[in-house]
Write a protein that binds this DNA or RNA. Structure first.
Lengths: 238, 238
DNA sequence: CTGACAAAAAGTGCATACAGTTTTTGCATG
DNA sequence: CATGCAAAAACTGTATGCACTTTTTGTCAG
């Protein structure tokens, strides 16, 4: 959030981590669906866009590729990753496990301030529910990421964050009608369950929530839902 | 080991992915404890060692940092990561979840060839149990990685592999007496349970196995076990 | 028109150069 | 001798250039 500002004051000094800034920007663009799966990300354009050399842009792409958000093939232009249906399913399976850990660690231990912080995000989700679709998806993701951050466990935070972004990207591929507004209520219930409830109860609710998100998108478009040009044009053939 | 040779024949051609080669070599060196947590990895030396420019070495370090095997701080020499005790605990917690998924997917579905392949690794572990300590640790890790690969699920494979390496690194920090030979028997039992048993049974055994590995090392050295110079020298003070 | 194919354009892969930042070293000083 | 400090050495951060590859474009024969 504050990084963007810091990048501006280019006093000739070394400059705070530019690679990270580009990664942050791209992650956000991807999660908000300003960038779609398959979109091209040439190093030149990227560098030019952010006012850095290809070296930096390239490094950012490498990082994002490691996170599974970008596909990087030798001698080819980088593209926003296009998760397969199986990938999406696996990502959600892992996500359920990881977030269950988050909830287990947090159940009954949220501070007043933390509850407030989470509620604020859900509030924002509520506000954004009729605005740009991208924003509400980002906020929904942010809710889960913030939750993970509250465990204070760096390793867990890292994996949850990464998997949440990948899940968001997967939904961009497979969820036809963007059906994530209902999440607002579920998120509120989650806060309550984690705040008051016993761990098991809260975990169960998180399981439910994630499974619901997954099926709303993944299962409903059961099977292929491939964006392959061949398939898209099939109905028009002859 | 063989990579170095290949790097020599510089025929001017494009050359297959050098970054990946360096990563592989370093991962292996780390898991075999040829490199210890905290060891320095200057870009120059690394590049020279592998016959590439700093650009490539740097990129490899970035990749490994993303995997949690290397610590990378601005303007500082990269070092092999030094996981905290909490990190180690969290890594094992996540590992249990991930490997449970592997077992669940594999239970009762191993082909003859796969069983043979796994058995071969355990055999190698047995052979190596009195040789170089590093080798047996690497083989034990390889067992789990191979298992994950048998699911054919790229996402799961990636996370299991990464977390296994991080677990290995954590053990390098916290496990005093290298106590991993007993794993041979446990690995054999695991193969059997996955081959024949129902998923629940096999999962339970995997849970046990991992928890055993974790406690043999992590819990036994309960609490600090910090490699901090201050602590090491404490007994000698005065 | 349609294909094929070659030249031009767009991009990536990698080394290198140079600026800036630690870290080390060497020395003088209290 | 310990201490500070400044110069040298060791490294990292980043842009740029060149070689090589892929993609696009343009042209010409069928």
């Amino acid at each position: 959030m504050a990084e963007e500002k810091r990048e501006q004051k280019r006093s000739g000094k070394t400059g705070g981590d530019r690679v990270a800034a580009i990664c942050t920007a791209l992650r956000r663009a991807i999660i908000e669906r300003a960038l779609s799966p398959g979109d091209r990300l040439p190093e030149d354009s990227l560098g030019e866009r952010f006012g850095v050399s290809r070296t930096i842009a390239r490094s950012a792409l490498g990082q994002l590729a490691a996170e599974g958000l970008v596909d990087l093939r030798r001698n080819r232009i980088a593209v926003v990753a296009v998760p397969s249906f199986e990938d999406a399913r696996d990502i959600f399976d892992i996500r359920v496990d990881l977030e269950r850990q988050v909830v287990r660690h947090l159940a009954g231990k949220l501070t007043e301030a933390q509850v407030k912080q989470l509620t604020a995000i859900v509030e924002a989700e509520h506000q954004a529910r009729h605005g740009a679709e991208g924003i509400s998806i980002r906020l929904a993701t942010e809710f889960h990421v913030r939750l993970a951050e509250m465990t204070g466990k760096p390793v867990l935070i890292r994996y949850v964050t990464e998997i949440c972004y990948r899940a968001g990207l997967s939904l961009a591929v497979f969820s036809r009608p963007h059906s994530s507004e209902c999440a607002v209520n579920e998120h509120l219930e989650l806060i309550e369950a984690i705040r008051t409830g016993p761990a098991d109860k809260a975990c169960a609710l998180m399981d439910e929530h994630l499974e619901a998100v997954a099926s709303r998108a993944l299962l409903q478009s059961s099977g292929a839902r491939s964006r392959d040009l061949m398939d898209i044009l099939a109905p028009y053939t002859e």
